[in-house]
């Protein structure tokens, strides 16, 4: 066949004037032009007022539900095959936060999971390690011991996960305990009740307090989008979390359905893209809950590449919160390498 074009797939280049930002269109928001969010690459340390936050969040452009879902569905039709698929599977493995968040979790269970995190498939030594292991705070010590020196992060849910219904002091104690036991990443939940009641300031201050407590640890803020109800509120919650200092915005706890969905992740990716354009700071996205298959994972990678840009395709900026996903990725990897589907008995069930 004669030669054909490779296509206009150049990197999206956002060059918004910083003084305008995505809220420039809406009336009443010019008092909180994103220049006041702080200098490029740093987080604002100013305290915001309730009115200021409301103006910021309500000045964000809306999300049209039908259009957002259609866009996500269209990107789901992208075909990732052959060499591209092999690269994407390895990339996805390196983005997994291997998670166990059960009442029945034990140190033994966590150690087994950590072994798998370090060497996901002993039969394939070139499989990359996952990004992190994610556990409850009281099991952080077991995880930190098992993972020591392996380059895999220790993430802990904290702040009265999953409901977040506890006094701030208790939440901070939760965070402090996890950090003291060796957590390098904190996955906090926001107070959805306060957010839905319009008390954006309370949510903002809680995130700022946890941010301060985290020190050098990585902070992921769980929005629990399944409880927010609208994409408009998903976008607002993402901006609120980013403004308060989140390193990552995360869809879900995994305890509420629906958890991560492609349109929700699309809206989050648009938010981090616009936030970087306005402030210069890049925030990551973590899709968590309900992602079980390689096909699903690749669709999220396509969403990230075509929405936020290819520089989001790194474990520093995109993560999967999942447990079952890893085994499917490993099975697909074996299939790609050998041409034969090997079945679930070939991968560890931990």
């Amino acid at each position: 066949m004669p030669d054909r074009g490779r296509g206009c797939d150049a990197e999206p280049l956002f060059v918004f004037p910083v003084a305008r930002g995505p809220s420039a269109a809406a009336p009443g928001t010019d008092v909180v032009a994103p220049t006041s969010l702080g200098d490029a690459g740093t987080v604002s340390t100013e305290t915001r007022g309730q009115a200021e936050l409301r103006a910021l969040l309500r000045g964000l452009p809306g999300v049209d539900r039908v259009g957002a879902e259609a866009r996500a569905a269209r990107l789901a039709a992208r075909s990732v095959k052959a060499a591209a698929k092999a690269r994407a599977v390895d990339l996805a493995i390196s983005m997994v936060d291997l998670t166990t968040l059960e009442g029945a979790d034990t140190p033994g269970r966590v150690r087994a999971l950590c072994a798998k995190a370090l060497r996901p498939d002993p039969g394939q030594p070139d499989v990359p390690s996952v990004a992190a292991v994610c556990v409850y705070p009281d099991l952080v010590g077991a995880a930190a011991d098992a993972l020591a020196g392996g380059g895999v992060g220790v993430a802990s849910v904290a702040t009265a996960f999953p409901a977040g219904r506890a006094p701030l002091a208790a939440k901070l104690a939760d965070v402090g305990a996890a950090l003291a036991a060796g957590a390098t990443e904190i996955d906090m939940v926001i107070d959805r009740g306060a957010f839905l009641a319009g008390d954006y300031l309370k949510v903002h201050e809680e995130i700022r307090a946890v941010r301060a407590a985290c020190g050098a640890a990585h902070l992921k803020v769980i929005l629990e989008t399944g409880e927010l109800g609208t994409y408009d509120d998903v976008r607002r919650a993402a901006w609120l979390a980013m403004d308060a200092g989140a390193d990552f915005v995360k869809t879900s706890t995994g305890k509420v359905a629906p958890a991560a969905t492609p349109p929700v992740v699309l809206v989050l990716l648009e938010a981090v893209r616009d936030y970087r354009a306005a402030t210069g700071r890049a925030v990551g996205v973590k899709a968590a809950g309900g992602i079980r298959t390689t096909k699903d994972a690749l669709r999220y990678l396509v969403l990230a590449a075509e929405t936020a840009g290819r520089d989001w395709l790194t474990p520093d900026r995109f993560r999967f919160g999942a447990s079952a996903l890893l085994n499917d990725l490993l099975m697909q990897r074996r299939t790609l390498a050998t041409g034969v589907y090997s079945g679930p008995d070939r991968v560890a069930q931990d």
Partner: peptide
């Protein structure tokens, strides 16, 4: 009032169109 920003967004999206 939003023309400059909107056109930048349209351009960024056009840059992701795959022609071929």
């Amino acid at each position: 009032s939003i023309a400059d920003e909107f056109v930048e967004r349209v351009k960024a999206r056009m840059a992701t169109l795959r022609v071929g």
